[in-house]
């Protein structure tokens, strides 16, 4: 058993044990943080698939996160109102709305990815950002679903037969299972033939084209997969907060996801999840840390520390945290 496997198993053991430790220590509210880490870890994992392995710098990944969340939010809204949308009556059944949300996110990624992938490089960055902004404004303009204010899911979390999602502990484990499942899945995909082609496109697109590979189609498939998984993460987040708003698609959210990927370690499977954990933990604890350093009056301005921190990481620690942990070892990048 290698060092990697050992670490992965112990990380899994910790994430299973941690909520019980928190309950024993009377810090139940931190289970919400753990759940958020699992959810954003999933979203960052999906972004890393196209960013770290495919070399596609998508600056609009929050769009799919938001679309997935909105599908669940809107279905819940209609279930609460007893009304219909496109002839479909609302629903709270996870087995119906969750796959629907994933499919809609995948479709959105298919359309926007098809258009965006006509370009590359810096054009691609700008275009993915612009399209995400377009969806943002689309949801802002939908007065029926609260416009700027968003949709509150009055019926609470989705309904799954045999599981009580309204229990925070249960919900955390659902998110954890989904995350671990997709980590395993992505790990298998990047090792597959498809993954090899994707990585090759990142390294040398011209050569892949010369080999007769339809680069754009491979990239599009990867883009759609990433969009679908981000949509699922959005679904989980909507369920966690029981609330969906255009903020889900805000461009800074796309930036945050990108930061998580790079902070943790691009082009690795655990990297994005580590990045999400560190990012959200910083967000949670940086204000308190600043307070303890007699900077209490600035604690709501924790970003003034975070911004320069980010610049330093980019300039000097390129492999991210995963890279620092396994410095000098080949990790398949």
């Amino acid at each position: 058993m290698s060092k990697h496997h050992l670490l992965a198993l112990s990380a899994l053991a910790v994430s299973i044990a941690l909520p019980f430790v928190l309950i024993a220590a009377g810090q139940e509210y931190l289970i919400g943080l753990l759940t958020r880490i699992a959810i954003y870890g999933l979203a960052a994992l999906s972004l890393n698939f196209i960013l770290g392995y495919g070399g596609m710098v998508s600056f609009g990944h929050a769009a799919y996160f938001g679309v997935g969340a909105y599908v669940v939010g809107i279905m819940s809204f209609h279930a609460f109102q007893n009304s219909t949308i496109f002839g479909l009556s609302g629903s709270d059944a996870a087995l119906f709305t969750w796959p629907l949300a994933v499919v809609v996110s995948a479709l959105a990624a298919l359309v926007l990815g098809y258009l965006s992938l006509r370009t590359s490089g810096v054009f691609f960055i700008m275009i993915t950002l612009a399209f995400a902004q377009m969806l943002y404004f689309l949801f802002v303009s939908m007065e029926r679903y609260g416009g700027d204010d968003g949709v509150i899911m009055y019926n609470g979390r989705s309904f799954v037969p045999g599981l009580d999602l309204s229990n925070d502990l249960t919900f955390y484990f659902v998110c954890l299972v989904v995350l671990v499942l997709f980590m395993a899945l992505f790990s298998a995909v990047v090792r597959s033939r498809f993954g090899a082609v994707l990585k090759a496109c990142k390294q040398n697109e011209a050569r892949m084209l010369a080999l007769g590979c339809d680069v754009r189609r491979y990239k599009l498939v990867a883009f759609v997969i990433a969009g679908a998984v981000a949509g699922l993460a959005g679904v989980l987040n909507a369920n966690l907060t029981e609330f969906v708003s255009p903020d889900y698609l805000h461009w800074t959210k796309s930036g945050d996801l990108m930061i998580m990927v790079v902070l943790g370690g691009m082009g690795t499977i655990p990297g994005p999840v580590i990045g999400a954990g560190v990012f959200l933990a910083l967000e949670e604890f940086l204000p308190a840390i600043m307070e303890s350093m007699a900077l209490a009056q600035y604690k709501e301005h924790w970003r003034i520390v975070f911004g320069p921190l980010l610049i330093i990481v980019v300039l000097f620690a390129r492999g991210g945290i995963h890279g620092l942990m396994f410095r000098g070892q080949s990790n398949g990048r």
Partner: peptide, 23 residues
């Protein structure tokens, strides 16, 4: 550097500038 690094570093700059002006 590649564009990703440029995007992230300048994103950090935005966070810093916005927060500084807020203060």
């Amino acid at each position: 550097r590649d564009h990703l690094d440029q995007v992230l570093a300048t994103f950090g700059l935005i966070l810093f500038a916005n927060e500084l002006l807020t203060i």
